[in-house]
Design a protein around this nucleic acid. Structure first.
Length: 454
DNA sequence: TTTTGAGTTGTTCGA
DNA sequence: GTCGAACAACTCAAA
């Protein structure tokens, strides 16, 4: 029998339930469809670059049998199953709104063709609809969700390993270039030595993290100049490694607060998918409705300065330059730049979300939205409104030697350490912008505005 | 139904 | 320089 395995956000061979359980079929036709019709928003530029390389890598591990199509998933599947006598489609279970809507259309269309559609959870440790409070409603606070909801409910599925007797077939010639994932201007050249985009690389990075860094993770994760984070997020985003694989590799380690902390960060990703599943409107609107009346400033000049890393606040600018140069930003610094945009500049979290979406390799539909709403105080389990990061203090505290700051802003290399986070106070003849706002005034303005909403 | 305790990541001020 | 309190009340979760 012929079956079609549809790859979407889990671009791997190892521990891929959709592929694993397809492999009992005689013949598998592996397909990736870049659907630019059944989506709410297009992938960002960085994501497309990552996707391009992830697909190429997957194609190689499937012995060059992966098919690439661009367009409407329904139309493409209808043609493929008809022309090739395919009886079964296997793919990942959808948990995000757009994917669920598409899934329903696929099932309907395939029913009409007499094709069975089977889905498998490839994406999360706990399915969002399985975790509910005793009263049957979803959690809105992370800690009880994670501790009482997830951890107490059941163990996540064990990873499946490599599929057996994989018999993939090429039925037509297609080219990845037809997906138009790479821009013509070679702006992405700068990433080529920065990231090794493959399933093997993901596993290697995670192994090295376990070997070298995990027992210093809980504290070390806050310091951008030292390499104590796993930097696995873009691999997880595109499913080059499964969260189940990660989870069970960690389970094999001795119980340790650092290991538990890393697991809880996986838990935060789960929580983001959970929130978007139960409250899909939060993709566009504030989870807390009272913020719908919030009057954002949205000053274009300020927003542009933030994007370019020209705010005059070194730790913010270093972060924004890291993002632009590497397609990644350290977690601590993400909070600093996001707090700065939303609270000090009073710019709508949706604008920040959109910029991250475009620039981050790990731009994840759920995590990005949930994270920005958390920072803005509009989301679940929100930060208290008076929690405003002071970029000068944060820089001094978490980049006390200035290594991170000067890595991305070399113009500041000769500034004495104690002046590094306020360089224009030290000298006004620098090749570096003056602060676009007065920190203290912007803080007071923000507190006032948030007080009106509370 | 009512009550109780708790809630990712901070900053500032004044003693 | 260090330390604790204030910042704010509300919503959520569970007994």
């Amino acid at each position: 029998m012929k079956s079609l395995t549809l790859f979407r956000n889990n671009l791997r061979k190892n521990d891929n339930p959709a592929l694993f359980f397809s492999s009992v079929s005689n013949e598998i036709i592996p397909v990736y469809i870049y659907d630019d019709i059944n989506i709410r928003k297009e992938l960002g530029g960085a994501s497309k670059y990552w996707l391009y390389h992830a697909l190429k890598s997957l194609d190689i591990s499937l012995e060059n049998t992966l098919h690439y199509f661009k367009g409407n998933t329904i139309k493409i599947l209808e043609r493929l199953v008809t022309e090739n006598d395919i009886k079964e489609i296997n793919y990942e279970e959808p948990f995000l709104e757009d994917d669920i809507i598409l899934h329903k259309k696929i099932v309907l269309a395939m029913q009409n063709k007499g094709v069975e559609v089977k889905t498998y959870n490839c994406t999360v440790l706990w399915k969002p609809y399985e975790i509910l409070k005793n009263d049957g409603t979803p959690y809105k606070v992370f800690s009880p969700y994670y501790r009482k909801g997830c951890l107490k409910l059941k163990k996540p599925n064990k990873p499946l390993g490599q599929p057996n007797n994989l018999n993939c077939t090429k039925i037509e010639q297609t080219s990845i270039d037809d997906l138009n994932l790479l821009d013509k201007t070679p702006w992405h050249k700068k990433f080529e030595n920065e990231w090794d985009i493959s399933e093997n690389a993901a596993l290697k990075i995670f192994n090295e993290f376990i070997e070298n860094s995990i027992y210093e993770y809980k504290i070390g994760r806050d310091f951008p100049a030292i390499n104590k984070n796993s930097r696995l997020s873009p691999y997880i985003r595109f499913g080059l490694i499964s969260v189940n694989k990660i989870w069970y590799m960690l389970e094999n380690l001795n119980f340790d607060k650092n290991v538990e902390h890393y697991k809880s960060e996986i838990g935060w990703r789960e929580f983001s998918y959970y929130l978007l599943y139960h409250f899909p409107f939060m993709a566009k609107d504030n989870l807390q409705k009272k913020f719908d009346n919030f009057n954002w400033d949205n000053n274009k000049q300020n927003f542009d300065a933030w994007k370019k890393g020209e705010t005059g606040f070194p730790i913010v600018d270093a972060g924004m330059k890291e993002l632009w140069q590497t397609g990644y930003m350290h977690n601590r610094i993400r909070m600093v730049v996001a707090s700065f945009l939303v609270k000090n500049l009073l710019i709508d979290w949706r604008l920040g979300e959109a910029w991250f979406w475009d620039c981050l390799f790990d731009a994840d539909y759920a995590s990005n939205i949930a994270g920005w709403q958390w920072t803005a105080g509009t989301g679940a389990d929100a930060a208290p409104y008076f929690r405003i990061f002071n970029p000068i203090l944060q820089g001094q505290k978490f980049d006390s030697e200035g290594k991170y700051t000067t890595k991305y802003i070399p113009e500041l290399s000769n500034i004495p350490l104690k002046n590094l986070q306020e360089p224009t106070e030290f000298s006004d003849k620098l090749n570096y912008p003056k602060p676009i706002i007065n920190y203290k005034l912007s803080r007071d303005r923000s507190l006032k505005k948030y007080e009106e909403i509370k």
